[in-house]
Write a protein that binds this DNA or RNA. Sequence first.
DNA 1: AATTATAGTTAGCTATGCTAACTAATTAAC
DNA 2: GTTAATTAGTTAGCATAGCTAACTATAATT
Lengths: 167, 167
Amino acid sequence: MPRRTSINNQQSAINNRIPGATARSNLAPLAVADRLHSAAIHLLRRVRKQDVATGEGPARLSALSVLVFGGPKTLGELAAAEQVKPPTMSRIAAGLASRRLAVITADPRDARRLNIRATPKGRRLLQKGRQLRIASLAAQLDVLTPDELHKLSKAVEILERLLDHWV
Amino acid sequence: MPRRTSINNQQSAINNRIPGATARSNLAPLAVADRLHSAAIHLLRRVRKQDVATGEGPARLSALSVLVFGGPKTLGELAAAEQVKPPTMSRIAAGLASRRLAVITADPRDARRLNIRATPKGRRLLQKGRQLRIASLAAQLDVLTPDELHKLSKAVEILERLLDHWV
DNA sequence: AATTATAGTTAGCTATGCTAACTAATTAAC
DNA sequence: GTTAATTAGTTAGCATAGCTAACTATAATT
C-alpha cells in the first residue's frame, strides 16, 4: 500500500504541502505552520479512534469535558465554550441529561438560566475515554529516546504559551 | 474572564489533566502525551475557524483535500482514506460533484468502480481554505524567536516520524 | 453456466450544525 | 409601577455527516 502524502478527515479538513512563499521573513513560520498543522491533524485523527469505546458522539464528549474540567455552566456558557449556537447546545445538553451524564437545573437567581453539571457517571465516562486517548498516544511516544521526549516536551511548552496568547 | 484550564470541541472530544501515573517508566510519556494532545486540540480548533470562508462542510473539504493532494481515487479508496463507510462517501462525493469541486466518472476497466477527481475549481477552493488555515497559524508562530521556531520544527520532525510508524 | 465476491447505491436511522421565529424572564425607561 | 427592551432558551425546520441493512450491478471463480 502506498503511503499517502496527505490525509484528512472530519475533524480537520484542510491539509499539507508547502504554500507559495511570499516574503522572505515569514518563509520559515509558514513552512513550520504547514507541517505542524498536518502533524496535529494526523495525531488527533489517530487518538480519536479510541472514542468509539465511550458510546457517545464527539459533541457530547466535548461538552461533557468542559463540564468535568471547567465545572457547572449555564447553557449559554457551554455553547460559547464549544463555539456552537444555543439551539445546538440545547440538544447536546438534553442528550447528556438523557444519558444521565449531566443534570440540568433551573438557576435559582435567574429563572431564564439553566445550570448544567456533570454527574459522577459523566465524570467516569469522560475520564475513561480520555484515558484511552492519552494512553494510545503515550504508547506511541514510548518508542522515543529520553532526549526526543524532552525536545517534544519543550516544543509543547512553546505551543502552550502560543495558545495562551492567541487572539 | 477566567482562563479555562481545559477546552474541547467538536473535533476533539476528550481532553487535558494529568492521568494517574502507574509505572515509573511511562510517567513521562503519559505526561507529554497529555499536553501534546491538548495542544493539538486547541491549535486545530483555532485554525479551523478559517474554514467557514470556504462555504463547504468539513467532510467535503477533507475528501477534496485527499483528491487534490493524493490524485484521483475510487469511491472505496476515498472512503478508506477518510475512514468512513462507502454510503457516507457516496454522499460526500455526490456533494462535491454537485458543487463542481470534483467530477465522477465510471472506470473504463471496471464498470463497478467510480473515478473521482478534483476539478480546477475544487483545487482553487481547497488551496484558498488551506492557505487561510496555515496563514492564521503562521501569523501566531511569527512571534517566536528563531530558536523557538527551530525547536518547534525539530519536534514536528519527531512527530512526523512517529506518525509514519504509527500502527 | 452458476456461484461467489466486490463496488456502490438506496433507505432509513441518529447526531450535529445552522437560522428564524417563538416564549419566558429580567432589566431599563418612563 | 407599567411598558418596553434585552436576555436566555426552545421549537421548527433545514442541511450535513455518520451508521447499518438490504439491494443492484459487475467481475472473478469454479
